[in-house]
Design a protein around this nucleic acid. Structure first.
Lengths: 347, 347
DNA sequence: GTTAGCACTCAGCTTTCAAGAGTGCTAACA
DNA sequence: TGTTAGCACTCTTGAAAGCTGAGTGCTAAC
């Protein structure tokens, strides 16, 4: 088995770029004409034959041109791809306009991303690794119901209803609130242990059953926050690419987007493997999701300093415009930073 | 132009039922064989010719069988369809299991509906027509931020952050809370007028700017609640029906499901036209959504007594199993009743 | 009014054919 | 030894042609 010499690399690069453009198998003559190598098609053919033997390209059928294999794409992404000169393509401004409901910002961003790239975009909300309690409040809503308002670090607010047998008077409520805040604030889920709970209940006296309910609500709220919400946009974009139009597979893929459950696997995978650049590329079978074997997935992890992090991803055909996609993701990372860094309301 | 006599109706019925089953144009011979009319195919042909002239059926091309026209479907739905004998097909139990987050219940229901019918399901949260304020509370979260908790009739809870220049002491906060609750509770958005606001601000004295912020938050919260959230499921089911597989149109349709904006039009249309049964059928062009001209849409409005209402819908091919769909929707209406009637927490 | 029979139509499938793109191989060239 | 020209071969693609089967409309007889 020979080495990948300079010329082979140039030819491989030319093949892949051409294929990214056209989506058609590319033949030796094309390369011979449209590259600065000034070699005849016959020579190119010999080289291509080698490249095929090495596994970088393959022939859909005899007497067709060559297309990149997964290995070829991988080589391209790792070594050949040009980083764009960070011209920070200003994203449309309307993202920044003050939509304080994070959910909408994220949906909006996914949408812009999908429109910019013409692929499918997914995005998760930033979530804390270990979430601390910041503030707690019980309020009497009506005769039989208490509302527990739970505020976490990062101003994530949760509400839970708690049913009671009888209404509490204002003073008791005040005392309970003070007790709860002094005992629990600043603690994370795993810091609230049996000892803390016992002490709390003891101090609450006859209202210890409310404490129980409250702690249940608290646990649930934290739980909820840890469940990832994933927003997708432009799912139908995949239908634009002939190589993904096989109706059976396309439908499975669309289903994956709708169900979202599997996407969580993908996100966790991404978060698990620490890449210094924060950008990751899964080509074909490299993706943990079976249905995406005909696709490439590019993900970016954004981290907001204080332990909060989330994932953005683009799913498209293998011959996606990797340079553009990576650029878009990088830009969006910056945007997310500026939007969420300034501590704003978040419901 | 002649009348639709008994026999023509029977034949029309047979044609439509057969077409619903097979999706293939149905010819005279089929009807002659598989119906209790004992007429020869030639006779059927004459009748079919008449039916075509009257516009109930049409021929995709000469020398093919007939398929129902929109008018034909309409006649079927209005006059021919058998009501199922309300066997209240018990839906899978897991819906009922106490998922207190309404969002999840709805998503789950949409999913079950889509799975049961093999069409696309959509569902909106029940929403109040005119929403009254039930309870209000300001809490100091940290030095510069107040949290406004807003509870509406029906225990819908909203949270808004309000920035302040300096922290308020407990006593002021308490006073403000009392003031707000006594002034605003029980009022709906259109009842909070300039007079009320002026009076409030006067009583708040130096803190009138907080009142302004709060009212903004309140307005926004009410606004938000009035925006319909729509959940869809089984969107890819439409790809199962050959007559909808045209990739251009299918993609437009899927896009409509993703965007949701247009679905709101549909829901509003449904809510506007009061049908005593609560079930409505849009066939082809009858639907307000252009992209659904190749589909039929069946919607049901559920009303929870106290002014709360929402919409469930099924979108499928024109030759959908109307009887089954209507039955499913009716059953779900009942289910929604039992789930939401007992006043449960709702976040 | 109903039916049998027949000629006619037409979508859709299959087969055939030619064109075009691309390859591998061989032999000649520098 | 690397490069190139040339040629035979392969295989996709698209168009054209032919066949089949389902279904119709019409006519004449019952």
């Amino acid at each position: 088995m020979q080495e990948l010499d300079e010329r082979k690399i140039k030819i491989l690069n030319a093949i892949i770029r051409n294929y990214l453009d056209t989506g058609e198998p590319v033949g030796s003559r094309t390369i011979s004409k449209y590259s600065d190598l000034s070699l005849s098609s016959a020579t190119i053919r010999n080289e291509m034959s080698d490249l095929e033997e090495m596994g970088f390209i393959l022939q859909p059928h005899t007497s067709a041109g060559r297309i990149p294999s997964d290995k070829g794409y991988r080589f391209y992404v790792d070594n050949l791809m040009r980083e764009k000169d960070r011209e920070v393509t200003e994203m449309k401004d309307f993202i920044i306009e003050h939509t304080e409901r994070m959910e909408r910002v994220l949906k909006q961003m996914a949408k812009v991303l999908a429109e910019n790239t013409n692929y499918t975009a997914m995005i998760t909300a930033p979530s804390y690794q270990r979430n601390k309690l910041k503030f707690l409040q019980l309020s009497q809503i009506d005769a039989e119901q208490l509302l527990a308002v739970i505020v976490m670090e990062g101003n994530i607010v949760k509400n839970k209803m708690i049913s009671t047998r009888e209404a509490l008077d204002n003073e008791t409520l005040l005392k309970l609130n003070i007790l709860l805040n002094t005992s629990l604030n600043g603690l994370s889920a795993d810091q609230i242990n049996l000892g803390t709970i016992a002490r709390l209940k003891e101090q609450a006296g006859i209202h210890s059953n409310i404490i129980s309910d409250l702690l249940d609500a608290l646990a649930e709220a934290i739980q909820e926050e840890e469940e990832l919400e994933i927003y997708t946009s432009g799912t139908t974009n995949i239908l634009k690419y002939p190589e993904l139009q096989d109706s059976q597979r396309a439908s499975e893929l669309l289903n994956t987007f709708e169900e979202k459950q599997q996407l969580i696997t993908l996100v966790n995978e991404t978060l698990a493997s620490e890449e210094e650049t924060g950008i990751q590329v899964y080509i074909g079978d490299e993706s943990p999701i079976q249905n995406m074997r005909d696709c490439s997935v590019v993900t970016a992890t954004y981290r907001l300093g204080d332990g909060m992090q989330g994932t953005i991803g683009i799913i498209g055909p293998k011959r996606m415009d990797y340079e553009n996609v990576v650029d878009n993701l990088k830009t969006l990372k910056v945007q997310l930073d500026t939007v969420f860094k300034k501590p704003e309301g978040k419901a």
